[in-house]
Nucleic acid binder design. Structure first.
Lengths: 334, 334
DNA sequence: TTGAAAGCGCTAACAC
DNA sequence: GTGTTAGCGCTTTCAA
């Protein structure tokens, strides 16, 4: 493997000049550059990123860390969308992405610390989960760099990109009410899942109900766990609590599929006995159920915003004010 | 940031001893280890992976490279399963995973070379795609390390993990025939998609037909492109070519969903006018259509086999004989 | 615009 | 079982 020195020797310039050609080429005359490039080509030289990292104290790698165990991560379409958003931005800006999803959820926090402290990454994009607030505290303390995909604790001010569903939930609920539905259920995400205490779906749902003079019933809210199975169970439970249920907001599409399966098994027709609203709007859902109303969860945008934010954090080496994106209520045309 | 030297000084030992405690602790007496660990703790020392990589000439990072553009990659459930399989093995063995999916497909080959040549990774797990064979030739030449997820060219002998569907396709087709179906379609994957020239699905399908004395009809084979849309179109086309079609093998579940949507739109009932077989067996499919027969595509196993193989390749620094896994035909109980 | 020297933090090779 | 020395390949002073 040719090194910088080999190139310098062959080109008849100093090592530093070769380095400049790769990193600050504007400081080198075109002539010298040509000389260097010729030598580079002849020797098939490629700069060693590791050596540069050691000296620069930056390795241009961002960790994408999901503290939920690998079986969960790689099957969650939303997470993949966030990853894709982050990936596209980071790649464009010259960063590599290292993914880390501990096999056992319990190892998650150690994993994150390890990655950062060992300088495998310059910073991390982090999923909210139990215990992440402690990590963050340590990071702030030691000047490690991070951005979280959502607020990790009440009052977090900086370095997060969150999504608020409140307004869309309001619109979606209002739509159901306006189209004559009165027994409206909410298949919510688990309260504890994302550590923020806000419960934005519930908020929008309640506001719309209140506005329409419909009483809020606790037993029309079911807390799912994002899975198909919990969606299936949700409908059974909700129908038991309120047989006349005629509308349902589903906080995730896998749960929505579970609900639809339960409907099939119960002989219910989508849009007839029961109207559903997807709070995910995954491509597959759009294709399988083109008529379905949905709240679009801007996961890709969240990921790319987080990517931009971590780059900015690395640049300024200072915290950055958090951002909350809004989801969109969409009523499909087709 | 404390360094090895700081620890050594505080512990009253040599730097090398500290290094040994982290890398070859069996060569250090317990007493000395305790001394070192105390100093490590006091200084909150963490080894710098970058510095170690520079010296060792190995960075313990494997690239997972998918030359198809990021929009494709992160939405393909099978690919995610392969990634998960690779991830679990590599993480366990102390490797990090760097994912690389060029935003534009055209940049793919350059990306791969860059990663490897710049020493950002020790080796790559690589998706077959047009042009990968050239990369491989260069890698073999320059002693770069790789494993491919499937054969990349006819006659590839080493460093691949492929999956053969032939036998399962035979079994699935035979099942359809045995249960009275006679007009059997094949919704195949694109011939060019994976560069191997084998067409294993077709092979198994044809063998079963032949055995049953059923004539093979070219117009009962449709070449899809893995998408929902091509599945939808496939059924329309196949029904036009052969209105009495009563069985169909679908090479991917997204295509299967498209077929099912088309069936709904045509008023056909699954299992009545038309029996389907999934050649993917994704979790969601199992849940949505529990009765469906399927060929299980062992994507997770393929990924983990590739993970093991690249580790082995790095260890021996030599090519390793390729492996072909078998898919399984399963008839669900439920 | 270019160059010389020092050193990032670690480990391999070799001594003891 | 432990220590010394040199150097991985680059970039950062600082000087010319």
């Amino acid at each position: 493997m040719a090194t910088l020195y080999d190139v310098a020797k062959l080109a008849g310039v100093s090592p530093k000049t070769v380095s400049r050609v790769f990193n600050e080429s504007h400081l080198v005359t075109e002539e010298t550059q040509k000389l260097v490039h010729a030598a580079v080509k002849k020797l098939d030289y490629h700069p060693n990123a590791i050596a540069a990292s050691l000296k620069r104290r930056r390795c241009n790698v961002i960790g994408f860390v999901v503290p939920y165990g690998s079986d969960f991560v790689f099957q969650d379409v939303n997470m993949m969308e966030q990853l894709r958003g982050a990936h596209d931005i980071l790649t464009r800006e010259g960063y590599e992405i290292l993914i880390s999803a501990p096999i056992r959820k319990e190892d998650a926090l150690n994993e994150i610390s390890r990655l950062v402290k060992h300088h495998n990454v310059d910073g991390v994009i982090l999923y909210p989960s139990a215990g992440v607030d402690e990590i963050i505290a340590e990071f702030d303390d030691k000047k490690f760099f991070y951005v979280t995909l959502g607020m990790c604790f009440p009052g977090q001010q900086t370095n997060f990109v969150d999504i608020s569903l409140t307004q869309s939930a309001y619109q979606a609920t209002k739509y159901l009410i306006d189209t004559g539905h009165r027994q409206l259920g909410l298949l919510n995400r688990p309260d504890s899942f994302f550590m923020n205490t806000r419960n934005d779906l519930l908020e929008g749902y309640q506001t719309a109900l209140q506005e329409a003079g419909i009483d809020f019933q606790t037993n029309l809210v079911y807390e799912g766990d994002y899975t198909f199975e919990s969606g299936y169970q949700a409908l059974l439970t909700l129908r038991e609590a309120c047989p006349a249920i005629d509308g349902l907001l589903c906080a995730s599409d896998p749960m929505l599929y579970g609900v639809i399966k339960a409907m099939q098994d119960l002989g219910l027709t989508l849009g007839k006995e029961l109207e559903l609203i997807s709070v995910d709007n995954l491509p597959l859902t759009r294709k399988l159920y083109p008529g379905l109303k949905a709240i679009h969860n801007p996961a890709y945008e969240q990921g790319s915003a987080a990517g931009k934010m971590i780059i900015e954090v690395l640049k300024t080496e200072a915290p950055i004010l958090g951002v909350t994106l809004k989801s969109n209520y969409i009523s499909h045309q087709k």
